[in-house]
Design a protein around this nucleic acid. Structure first.
Length: 463
DNA sequence: CGGGAGCGCGCG
DNA sequence: AAAGCGCGCGCTCCCG
C-alpha cells in the first residue's frame, strides 16, 4: 500500500520514509508558525487579576493556619512544615524523591489532605501559581507586533517522532480543570473568524489494535464499540456475582443521553462510569505505557476511582492482557526486536534506539522495555498526524486559492489534533473535507475516526 | 548575577 | 519510590 509522497507502511527501519513524512508536513508546520494564535489580551488581564486575588486569599489563610509565612512553591519548606512542624504522617511508606528528599507532589499531599487544612491550601496555591506564572502572565508578553502568539514547532526533538512546541509551548495549555480551561478561553479567533479542530479519535488505541492485530481490539473498532465499556464488562463483576452485559450498559448510556432514565438507574450508571468504565480506561492507557500494579493503583485513585489492592491491580492487568492477548504477544515481539537490533520502529519505519535494554541496572532495562512497548504506538500515531497534515495541506491550499478573501489557516498540531482559524463561510466545507482526508490519510485494518469541532475560542473546541 | 540541578506540573 | 510513555517550562536552591 502506498501513501502520499511515496510514504508506505514498512516493518523495518526506513530513514527515507522518515524524511518523507517529516518533509511532507513541513509546509503546514511553517505556515502554522507564521500565522500564530490570536489572544484576547483583555481576557488574560482579567484572569490575572482573578488568579492574583485567589492566590492572596490562600496565602492569608495559610498564614492564619500555621502562623508563619512559608513559600508553597518550595518543596523543601512545604516538607518541613507538613512533616516536621505539623508532624503529619503519611500512610504507608514514606515517599521520597529521586535524591532522597521528602516528596511533596500532588499525589503525596492528597494522601494527607484530610489531616490538616493547610495541605489543600498549599495545593491550591500551587495550582494558582502555576496558572499565573506559566500561562496568564507570560503568554500575553510573547504576543508579536501582529497581535499573535508564535511558537516554534519541532519535528524531530521527540524521540518517538511526535512534534513538540516551544517558545512558548502551546501543546500544554490547560484544559482539564475548570479554572485552567479559562486560559483556553483567551485563545480566540480574530474578529470575524472562528477556530476549528480536527481530532484523530482514540488514535493510540487504534494503533495498538493495528500493530498487534489483536482480534478482540480489531473487532471493537470495526464495530465502532466503546472500548472502555467493553473492557469494563470483560474485567469486572457486579457485586451480586453476575456479569455486566455490554449491550445492556450501552442501552442505558443511550437512554441517559436521551434523558429518559429514572433516577435509580441513572445512579447505577454513574456508579458504573466511576467505578468500572473509568478504571478500565485508566488501565488501558496504563498498559500502553507499561504501567505496573502500583502505578495503576495510584492512577485509578487519582481519577476518583475505587481503591483496589495491589493484588487486585495485578489481577486486572493480567486480565486485560488476557482479554487482548494479541497486545501482550506484540509487546514481546518488540522486546525481542529491541534486544536483537537495539531499536524499535514505528509502522512507517521511524526508528528509535533503545540502548537501555542492554544495561546492567534492572530498572534501566525495565525502563527500556516500557519504551519498546510504547514507542511504536505513540510514534505511529505521531507519524499518522504528520501524514494527515501533508494531505490536509493540499486541501488548505485549494481553499486559499479558491477563496482568497476567506481565511483558511492552520494554526497548531497537538499530538492527535489540528487547530485552524477559518472564515465561517467556508468552515463547514473545509472541516468536512479535512475530516475525510484525516480519516482516509492512512488506511488501517479498522476505520479511523476523526472528530470535528468549532467555536469562537479554544475552550469551545471540546467535541 | 548566570547556570544548572531538582522538583513539580501543564498537555496528549 | 512513582517501578507511567512523550514533551517544555517555572520556581527554588545552590554553586561559582
Amino acid at each position: 500500500m502506498r501513501l502520499i509522497h511515496g510514504i508506505r507502511r514498512i516493518d523495518s527501519p526506513c530513514l527515507v520514509n522518515v524524511r518523507r513524512i517529516d518533509q511532507g508536513c513541513m509546509p503546514m508546520v511553517v505556515e502554522m508558525m507564521s500565522h500564530g494564535m490570536f489572544l484576547d489580551l483583555a481576557h488574560f488581564q482579567r484572569l490575572g487579576v482573578k488568579v492574583d486575588g485567589k492566590m492572596a486569599e490562600v496565602e492569608a489563610q495559610i498564614y492564619r493556619l500555621v502562623g508563619c509565612h512559608i513559600n508553597p512553591s518550595s518543596s523543601l519548606q512545604v516538607a518541613r512544615l507538613l512533616f516536621h512542624e505539623l508532624g503529619l504522617e503519611l500512610p504507608g511508606r514514606p515517599r521520597m524523591t529521586a535524591t532522597g528528599r521528602a516528596s511533596t507532589d500532588e499525589d503525596t499531599l492528597s494522601l494527607i489532605k484530610h489531616l490538616h487544612p493547610a495541605v489543600n491550601l498549599i495545593l491550591a496555591h500551587r495550582g494558582y501559581k502555576k496558572l499565573k506564572g506559566t500561562y496568564v502572565t507570560p503568554l500575553p508578553l510573547m504576543v508579536g507586533p501582529d497581535g499573535r502568539l508564535h511558537c516554534q514547532i519541532r519535528l524531530t526533538v521527540a524521540r518517538t517522532g511526535r512534534m513538540a512546541s516551544d517558545s512558548p509551548n502551546l501543546q500544554n495549555i490547560p484544559v482539564r480543570e475548570e479554572l485552567g480551561s479559562q486560559v483556553r478561553c483567551g485563545f480566540v479567533a480574530e474578529e470575524g473568524y472562528e477556530l476549528g479542530a480536527l481530532d484523530l479519535s482514540q488514535i493510540e488505541m487504534v494503533w495498538a489494535a493495528e500493530l498487534s492485530q489483536d482480534p478482540a481490539m480489531l473487532d471493537i473498532f470495526r464495530r465502532g464499540l466503546d472500548m472502555h465499556v467493553r473492557t469494563a464488562c470483560g474485567l469486572f463483576r457486579p457485586d451480586d456475582g453476575g456479569t455486566y452485559h455490554y449491550d445492556a450498559v450501552m442501552a442505558l448510556i443511550q437512554a441517559d443521553k436521551a434523558g429518559t432514565l429514572d433516577p435509580a438507574t441513572k445512579a447505577w450508571l454513574e456508579d458504573f462510569r466511576k467505578n468500572k468504565r473509568t478504571p478500565a480506561k485508566t488501565l488501558g492507557f496504563g498498559i500502553l505505557y507499561g504501567q505496573t500494579a502500583q502505578g495503576l493503583q495510584q492512577n485509578i485513585l487519582a481519577n476518583d476511582g475505587p481503591l483496589f489492592s495491589l493484588e487486585e491491580c495485578e489481577t486486572y492487568i493480567d486480565a486485560w492482557y488476557e482479554l487482548y492477548h494479541g497486545v501482550r504477544e506484540w509487546m514481546e515481539v518488540q522486546y525481542r526486536r529491541a534486544r536483537q537490533h537495539g531499536m524499535v520502529w514505528t509502522a512507517f519505519g521511524r526508528p528509535r534506539l533503545i540502548p537501555e535494554v542492554k544495561a546492567y541496572s534492572h530498572s534501566t532495562v525495565n525502563q527500556g522495555l516500557r519504551q519498546c512497548g510504547n514507542t511504536p504506538i505513540q510514534g505511529s500515531a505521531g507519524d499518522h498526524l504528520k501524514i494527515a497534515m501533508a494531505i490536509i495541506w493540499l486541501i488548505v491550499q485549494d481553499f486559499q486559492y479558491r477563496y482568497p478573501d476567506e481565511r483558511c489557516w492552520p494554526l497548531l498540531p497537538v499530538h492527535d489534533e489540528l487547530i485552524f482559524e477559518l472564515s465561517p463561510s467556508i468552515r463547514d466545507d473545509f472541516l468536512g473535507l479535512a475530516k475525510e482526508a484525516m480519516e482516509t490519510s492512512v488506511p488501517l485494518s479498522v476505520p479511523v475516526k476523526a472528530s470535528v469541532a468549532h467555536g469562537r475560542s479554544w475552550a469551545e473546541l471540546k467535541s
